[in-house]
Write a protein that binds this DNA or RNA. Structure first.
Length: 470
RNA sequence: GGCGAGUUGGCGGAGUGGUUACGCAGCGGAUUGCAAAUCCGUGUACAGGAGUUCGAUUCUCCUACUCGCCUCCA
């Protein structure tokens, strides 16, 4: 069996992955707060952990992995969006949730087994908070419930901080009701205009971190295998999750392996609205960047390194995928359930998700298109959807048969063939070159060989530009 | 200020205590009316300094720089 090696943030070491129960390997990944379109950075953990999910399913069997990714649908950002847009919270979260699913499907991510929404787990959160108060790890104050960080001796262990250091470096004002400045909110009061639920502490809503503790416990148990997310979540979110969960379920250990992906940058800079380099996954898709290109670029950099999204990488990825598609579009993929990938390929991915090496492996398969197709599909490329689009495009513009633009191409091809044959005798190729230039200008690919002329419509083919040649 | 990650050839990006991936671009060649596509060949690198070692790009320490987090953020 393949040994999976993962870099565990908890120990800061690369470790062999040993599941608690190989019959049910459990992974929790922090999902989005649903108030707006997912930006490109949101896609990184989704794609990274999608690869890990595929790997776990391969090694332990598709029915022996449980992958949970939540939707945070209660949050002050959502409330703010509702107030500002005049739309209801439910409408916003429902719409944004669907957008997220659509966009992530477009980049080739499989859906997790469970996608719980925070608002469906309020009673479980309240129960957990009550337990934390009873055991002395939390206290109620002025309608809030706060977690007492000093009651958990390992607080800060994951992110390598001490409570004292953090207080010294803190740049936030401290609420007067906190016993320790680092204490964080488990529950907070809601006014009449804010969503709220009845609780022992009055009508209110949960703090940011408790949802993940409550949902992971409900769906995966107190002790599970892998917990993932962006490294910006390491502190405070994951630190707080650990504190809550470990105090609520003493001795459970919570997650064994913590995985964090590095952040995304754009042309070497942090993606931010103020720098004007902020864009969503949907923006790219709408610009005609295929989802698989986004996926390719994401997987070409190791997940623990900063990933720089650049125009150049986008172009290169597009070229490579174009090449793969050209080689494989007319082949039949092997049944995914029966396909056995090359151990070398799997080992690269099992080595702390060395996806770049896996892509290199794929690139080495261009002489074996069938193998390329099946391995690429294993990693989420050359999907049915992409292949179908390819086939449609080829049928519509093929130089062989068909109607409309394809008929035009076919007649141009024939005329060029004839002109070329004449030119070969007369040694005057001017007319052929004029035709070729026009075709290239219209976004078509022209190939001439001993066997004749081939004309293929490229991705930006514009048949209207060829009207003049008719 | 605290914590963390990183610095590899023109660019991207793996990896390794000794033999220096791979892709793109470049260059040379085959092929072509010319191209495209394809194939073959080819150059250049491990931020700086000190240490450990027979030997370090790879391990340790220091310095510089870059990035992220410490506030909602994936």
């Amino acid at each position: 069996m393949t040994t999976i090696k993962l870099h565990n943030t908890k120990t800061r070491k690369r470790e062999d992955f040993v599941p608690i129960d190989p019959e049910n390997v459990r992974m929790y990944v922090c999902g989005p707060t649903v108030y707006d379109r997912a930006h490109l950075g949101n896609a990184r953990p989704v794609i990274v952990f999608d690869v890990l999910y595929r790997l776990l399913r391969h090694v332990y069997g598709p029915d022996h992995v449980t992958y949970v990714r939540n939707f945070t649908d209660v949050d002050d950002k959502i409330n703010a969006r509702a107030a500002q847009s005049g739309r209801s919270i439910g409408e916003i979260t429902a719409e944004t949730t669907q957008w997220f699913l659509d966009d992530m499907a477009a980049v080739g991510a499989l859906e997790p087994n469970e996608m719980p929404r925070a608002t469906a787990y309020i009673p479980q959160m309240i129960e957990m908070i009550e337990g934390l108060i009873t055991s002395g790890h939390a206290y109620a104050a002025e309608g809030h419930v706060l977690f007492a960080v000093e009651s958990y001796k390992d607080y800060g262990a994951l992110s390598g901080r001490s409570i004292d250091d953090m207080i010294a470096g803190a740049r936030v004002e401290v609420a007067p009701y906190k016993r320790n400045p680092m204490d964080f909110v488990l529950w907070k009061p809601s006014d009449a205009d804010t969503p709220g639920w009845d609780s022992p502490w009055g009508r209110g809503r949960p703090g940011w971190h408790i949802e993940c503790s409550a949902m992971s416990f409900e769906l995966l148990g107190a002790h599970f295998d892998i917990h993932g997310g962006g490294n910006d979540l390491m502190f405070p979110h994951h630190e707080n999750e650990i504190a809550q969960s470990c105090c609520a379920h003493p001795g459970s250990g919570f997650a064994n392996y913590w995985l964090h992906n590095e952040m995304l940058q754009v042309e070497g800079k942090k993606m931010s609205k103020s720098l004007g380099n902020f864009f969503t996954v949907r923006d790219l898709l709408d610009q005609g960047v295929p989802g698989e290109v986004i996926r390719f670029v994401m997987l070409s950099t190791h997940y623990r390194k900063p990933m720089d999204w650049t125009e150049k990488k986008r172009e290169e990825a597009e070229k490579t995928l174009r090449k793969w598609m050209n080689l494989t579009w007319n082949l039949q993929p092997f049944d995914a359930g029966l396909f056995e990938p090359d151990p070398k390929f799997v080992e690269a991915i099992a080595d702390d998700l060395n996806t770049h090496l896996a892509l290199v492996y794929l690139n080495g398969l261009t002489a074996q298109p069938q193998k390329l197709l099946d391995h690429a599909r294993w990693l989420g490329f050359l999907s049915d959807k992409a292949r179908l689009e390819e086939e449609k495009a080829r049928r519509a513009y093929s130089s062989g048969s068909g109607t409309g633009a394809s008929e035009l191409l076919a007649s141009l091809r024939q005329r060029m063939d004839a002109l070329r044959n004449d030119a070969k005798l007369s040694k005057n190729f001017d007319l052929v070159d004029v035709f070729k230039a026009a075709l290239l200008d219209a976004g078509a690919e022209v190939r001439m060989s001993k066997d004749g002329v081939e004309v293929i419509a490229g991705p930006n083919f514009d048949p209207t530009k060829l009207e003049a040649l008719k």
